[in-house]
Computed example of a mutant assay.
Amino acid sequence: MEALLKVKSNLGYSLFKIYLLNYILNYLLAMKLSRLAISDEGFVFDPETGNAYTVNETGLLVLKALREGKSPPEIAQALSEKYEISPGAALRDIEEFLEILRRYHLWEGKTDG
């Protein structure tokens, strides 16, 4: 019985560590996204690098949702409702957009939802 309690305790501690690491990662990603100046017209400026970009309406929606801490699957659900496409198709588009952001060093998160 004591060994079982220890396993449960270790499992709880491991889950806490995973939660904490996930929280820290999300905080750092939000910091990176928060430095961007994003206009309602889709103009994106990175003051750290001086680079400027433009995104379409969908890209703007994704960036704003990421800043709010939403996950790619959550964003995909919102896009599927707004544009009447399947959540799977929306998620694939989001993952492709996140890869582009990663290439420009604007995103460091996972692209697999």
Score class of each variant (00 low, 15 high):
residue 2 E to Q: 09
residue 2 E to V: 10
residue 2 E to S: 09
residue 2 E to R: 09
residue 4 L to R: 12
residue 7 V to P: 00
residue 8 K to S: 10
residue 8 K to C: 07
residue 8 K to Y: 03
residue 10 N to K: 15
residue 11 L to S: 03
residue 11 L to R: 09
residue 12 G to E: 15
residue 13 Y to T: 05
residue 15 L to H: 14
residue 16 F to N: 14
residue 18 I to S: 13
residue 19 Y to L: 04
residue 19 Y to V: 03
residue 19 Y to I: 06
residue 20 L to T: 07
residue 21 L to A: 09
residue 22 N to H: 01
residue 22 N to F: 00
residue 23 Y to V: 02
residue 23 Y to R: 01
residue 26 N to M: 00
residue 28 L to Y: 02
residue 28 L to T: 01
residue 32 K to I: 10
residue 32 K to E: 13
residue 36 L to T: 11
residue 37 A to F: 11
residue 38 I to K: 02
residue 39 S to I: 03
residue 40 D to P: 09
residue 41 E to R: 09
residue 42 G to I: 02
residue 43 F to P: 00
residue 43 F to C: 02
residue 45 F to I: 11
residue 45 F to P: 13
residue 48 E to R: 05
residue 48 E to K: 05
residue 49 T to E: 14
residue 50 G to K: 15
residue 53 Y to V: 03
residue 56 N to P: 06
residue 57 E to H: 11
residue 57 E to N: 11
residue 58 T to S: 07
residue 58 T to P: 00
residue 61 L to T: 10
residue 62 V to C: 01
residue 63 L to W: 05
residue 63 L to S: 07
residue 65 A to T: 05
residue 65 A to P: 06
residue 67 R to A: 02
residue 68 E to Y: 06
residue 68 E to I: 05
residue 69 G to P: 01
residue 69 G to Y: 06
residue 69 G to N: 04
residue 70 K to Q: 15
residue 74 E to S: 03
residue 77 Q to P: 01
residue 79 L to S: 06
residue 80 S to I: 03
residue 80 S to R: 08
residue 80 S to N: 07
residue 82 K to W: 07
residue 82 K to E: 12
residue 83 Y to F: 15
residue 85 I to T: 12
residue 87 P to L: 09
residue 88 G to N: 01
residue 88 G to S: 01
residue 92 R to Y: 14
residue 92 R to A: 11
residue 96 E to Q: 12
residue 96 E to N: 14
residue 97 F to G: 00
residue 97 F to E: 01
residue 98 L to M: 00
residue 99 E to A: 04
residue 100 I to H: 15
residue 101 L to G: 02
residue 101 L to W: 06
residue 101 L to H: 01
residue 103 R to Y: 13
residue 105 H to D: 13
residue 106 L to P: 06
residue 108 E to Q: 15
residue 109 G to W: 00
residue 110 K to G: 02
residue 111 T to C: 02
residue 113 G to W: 02
residue 113 G to Y: 01
